[in-house]
């Protein structure tokens, strides 16, 4: 039954939750609030089932599976935060800021590479560390982005001396500024570790197989984005008395640009940073484009089991599989 859950199930649930959160701007009702939480929870359960099904089919944790799964894990973390905050604070208009990003990520995951990256599973511990650091760092970036947007909305409201709109209660500028600062200060080191482990990963792989080339445009763009975040990080540390609005603007641009660029890269660069290239072919190509997604995952799973049984290198097992298909 769990295998029947599709991306559309939780995408639609999150979209409904977002619509209900928007409704709260005009209709102040506990029913609407709980309906939004209910839809988000339903999406959360479907989301979890989807990730578990894929992880089990690929015999890999979602973080190591594919960019598609990685993006969904990130969205999943954002939903956890949304549910936690929404249940704790009934007045805070947090969902209106966070759910659009969740919807964007789930929507984007439809268009990114869904094939499993075999290289990450080959060096599992490094791969796990790399993916975990990146996903936590990216979650921090999303939080910083949301907080900075909330800061700017609150700042504008206070400068224009307008009343709070129902359903859009926001924390004080002081609290938003402080949380924003911490989100950046925590997420940038995590992104840095993610970056460093990614470089380490490619160095470990290089003697045995063709690895990611550091000169690839996607890697260069990612490095530039990281440098931008690092610049923001250093600036926050050395200039603690900077006006909060300036911090919020810079954070919003830096984090928003990082997120959007990463997603666009993943969609348009045939696999993005992790575009799997084995002598010019990715895993999906290796296994044949005519296979459906679930078939390809199952085939990869069988391939791994076979590789473990006959104790041959992963690349050779791919050839074995190809030979079997040809025959």
């Amino acid at each position: 039954m769990l295998s029947n859950v599709t991306l559309l199930c939780f995408f639609a649930s999150y979209l409904c939750a977002l619509a209900l959160e928007a409704t709260r701007l005009w209709v102040k009702s506990a029913v609407v609030r709980w309906a939004a939480i209910g839809f988000a929870s339903a999406g959360f359960v479907a989301h979890m089932a989807y990730l578990l099904t894929r992880a089990s089919a690929a015999d890999l944790p979602p973080l190591l599976s594919s960019t598609h799964d990685w993006l969904l894990v990130l969205a999943f973390l954002a939903v956890v935060i949304y549910l936690f905050v929404s249940v704790l604070d009934r007045n805070l208009g947090f969902g209106l800021f966070l759910l659009p990003i969740v919807v964007l990520m789930v929507g984007a995951s439809r268009f990114v590479n869904q094939s499993t990256d075999a290289r990450l599973s080959a060096v599992r511990s490094w791969g796990m560390l790399h993916a975990t650091m990146w996903v936590l760092g990216a979650a921090g970036v999303i939080i910083a982005l949301v907080l900075s947007v909330m800061y700017l909305v609150q700042h504008r409201r206070l400068r224009h001396k307008t009343l709070l709109q129902d359903g859009l209660e926001l924390p004080s500028l002081e609290r938003l500024g402080r949380l924003n600062w911490w989100a950046i200060v925590v997420s940038v080191p995590l992104l840095t570790l993610g970056m460093a482990t990614g470089v380490g990963l490619s160095l470990i792989e290089s003697p045995v197989r063709n690895s990611v080339r550091l000169s690839e445009p996607s890697i260069v763009i990612s490095l530039l984005l990281w440098m931008g975040m690092m610049g923001l990080f250093v600036w926050l540390l050395v200039a603690p008395r900077t006006p909060g609005k300036l911090v919020a603007w810079r954070t919003m641009w830096a984090c928003g640009f990082l997120l959007v660029t990463l997603i666009i890269l993943e969609i348009f660069s045939q696999g993005g940073i992790h575009g799997v290239r084995e002598n010019g072919e990715d895993v999906e190509a290796v296994m044949g484009h005519d296979l459906s997604r679930s078939e390809s995952l199952a085939a990869l799973h069988r391939e791994r089991q076979l590789a473990r049984t006959i104790r041959v290198p992963q690349g050779d097992s791919s050839r074995l599989h190809r030979g079997a298909k040809d025959s």
């Binding site: 609150q154 409201r157 206070l158 001396k161 009343l163 709070l164 926001l170 924390p171 004080s172 500028l173 002081e174 609290r175 402080r178």
Partner: peptide, 10 residues
């Protein structure tokens, strides 16, 4: 309540 508390946390 409406303005001060939205600027300062404490």
């Amino acid at each position: 309540g409406e303005f001060g508390r939205n600027i300062f946390d404490r």
